[in-house]
Write a protein that binds this DNA or RNA. Structure first.
Lengths: 248, 248
DNA sequence: CGAGGGTTTGAAGTGCATCAAATAGTGTGG
DNA sequence: CCACACTATTTGATGCACTTCAAACCCTCG
C-alpha cells in the first residue's frame, strides 16, 4: 500500500512549515528563526526506525506528511501500538517532561517527511517563551481529549463499530452523503491501532459492509450512505458524529 | 463501603492546601492569594452529582480527599467511566481549552472534600502567569502518559491482570513483600474503570487469587507475595513494576 | 515467473458478557 | 437488638465476540 496523503500542497521549506504549525504560532520572529535554523528535514521510507524506547531523547519530531507508528514492547515481545500519527502532529515531545529518554519506539508506517528539532531548544523555549508554552498546552489538551475518547471506544464499541468510527474520522469535514476513502496504512496496523487482531479486522470489515452497505476494494473504501454508517457506529459512543478533531 | 483515604493528615485550610498543590507551586504570592480568596471548600457524600456533561463550565475542581467518578453517557444510556480521581487531582480543567462546557459528568464515588476555583480565574492565570502554565503543562503531560498506559492495558491485559495491575498501583511505593489494602471504592466501579462487568470482575478476582495467592475479605485484599503478583500481572505490559505515577 | 508480504478464510478454543437468581452486607425502624 | 428493605457482590448457565493456529489467496515487485 502506498497511498500517502491526499492533496497536500507540495512542501516548500522548513520555514514555511514551521510558520504554519500550531505549535509555533505567535511565538515571535526571533524564536521562530532559531527553530528554523536548528530544524532538519528528512525523508524516510516505510519501515525506517526513528528511535527506540530507552534511547536518549535528543529530538522532537514534527511530521510534514506520511504516517509514523509509535509503539512499546512488552516483556514477552508483543508490540503495543500507542498511536499512529500524520501531518502536523509531533512526537518525542513528551520526553521534555520526563527523564530525557523516549518512553516508546517510533517507526515509519508510510513514506514520511519529518522535521527534527533539538529537544534542548524546545525545553528552553517552553520555559522562556510563554506563548510557546501555551501552544504546547493546547496541543496536549487536544491530545488528552482524544485519548479519553479512545479509551471509551475500546470499552463500548465492538470491532465493526471501531472500524466504522475509524473510517468516519478519515472523512473530510463536511463530506457529502457518499465518500471515497483510501486506507492510510496497512490493515494490520489499523487493526492494532484499534486493538484488534488482523484476522478479526478482516472479518469485522466484512460485517461492517453487510451492516452499512460500504464498498471495499483492497485499500479503498466507498461509503455510499454516510448517515447509515454513522447510525451503526456512533450509537454506542458518547460523542456524536462529526467527532471534531482529525486524527489517524 | 466507606474506606476513604489512608492516613492523610487532617485538613487545615484552603491556603495550606493550595500552597502545596503541584498546580500552584512557585506561582507567586499575589496569584496564590487571589486563588485562595476565590476558592471554596465543600464536602459531599457518595452519590452527589457535581456537574453533568453539557453544563456550563464555571469551576475547576481540586480534590482534597475522597474519590470522584468522571463519566459520559452514550446515546443508548450506557455509562462510560472516564476516570476515577482522588487527592491532589483536578478535573473540569479541560474545559479551559474547550468550548466552555463540561465534556463529561462528575459524581462523588466516596465521601469527598473538594475545592472549587472560578474557571475564569484559572483561564486568565494561564495566560498571564508563565509558571502556572508550566505547572499545568506538567500535570497534563503526566496525565497523558498515564492514559497511554491505560490504553495499552485495555489491549494487552486480560481481566485478572488488569485487576492485579490496579492493586499494584494501590500499593504505597516501597512496599514490603506483604501488603494489606482496602479497595478504595465499590467493586462495580473498579470494574467499569477497568473496562469489565461486575460479574466478570468478581470471577476474575477469584482467578487472580488462585494464581497469586492473594487473600480477599470483602473490600480488603492482602498481598502475601508482591513479587508473585508482579510477575503474573506485569509480563504483558511494557512498563515494569513500580509504575511510577500514583493513581486511583 | 517466482518470492514474499499483506490479506482473507476456515475450524476450534477462550474469555468476557448476559440474564437470572442466590447470597452477603448495610442501614433502618420497630 | 432484631427483622426488613435495599444494595452490593457472588454464582450459575449459556451465548457471542474475539483470538488462535493453520492454510490459502492475492498482489506487488524484482
Amino acid at each position: 500500500m502506498s497511498c500517502a496523503v491526499k492533496t497536500t500542497p507540495p512542501f516548500i521549506s522548513i520555514a514555511e512549515y514551521l510558520g504554519k504549525a500550531p505549535l509555533f504560532v505567535d511565538i515571535g520572529a526571533k524564536y521562530l528563526r532559531e527553530f528554523v535554523d536548528a530544524a532538519r528535514l528528512y525523508t524516510a521510507p516505510k519501515g525506517k526506525v526513528l528511535f527506540i524506547q530507552g534511547d536518549k531523547a535528543n529530538y522532537v519530531y514534527l511530521i510534514v506528511d506520511g504516517w509514523v507508528k509509535l509503539f512499546r514492547e512488552t516483556l514477552e515481545g508483543t508490540e503495543a501500538v500507542i498511536d499512529v500519527l500524520t501531518s502536523n502532529h509531533s512526537f518525542g515531545d513528551t520526553s521534555v517532561f520526563e527523564d530525557g529518554y523516549y518512553s516508546y519506539s517510533a517507526e515509519v508506517a508510510e513514506h514520511t517527511r519529518y522535521i527534527t528539532l533539538p529537544i534542548s531548544m524546545v525545553k528552553s523555549a517552553i520555559t522562556t517563551n510563554h506563548q510557546f508554552a501555551l501552544n504546547m498546552l493546547l496541543t496536549m489538551s487536544q491530545h488528552r481529549h482524544q485519548q479519553s475518547r479512545e479509551i471509551e471506544h475500546l470499552n463500548n464499541q465492538n470491532a465493526p463499530q471501531r472500524i466504522g468510527c475509524f473510517l468516519l474520522r478519515l472523512c473530510p469535514v463536511g463530506s457529502a452523503a457518499s465518500v471515497t476513502l483510501n486506507l492510510p496504512y496497512d490493515k494490520a496496523l489499523i487493526a492494532s491501532r484499534l486493538g484488534i487482531k488482523p484476522e478479526t479486522f478482516s472479518r469485522a470489515l466484512v460485517k461492517l459492509r453487510a451492516e452499512t452497505q460500504i464498498e471495499i476494494q483492497g485499500p479503498t473504501v466507498i461509503i455510499h450512505d454516510l448517515q447509515r454508517l454513522v447510525s451503526y457506529t456512533c450509537n454506542h459512543c458518547s460523542s456524536s458524529f462529526p467527532c471534531k478533531d482529525v486524527k489517524g
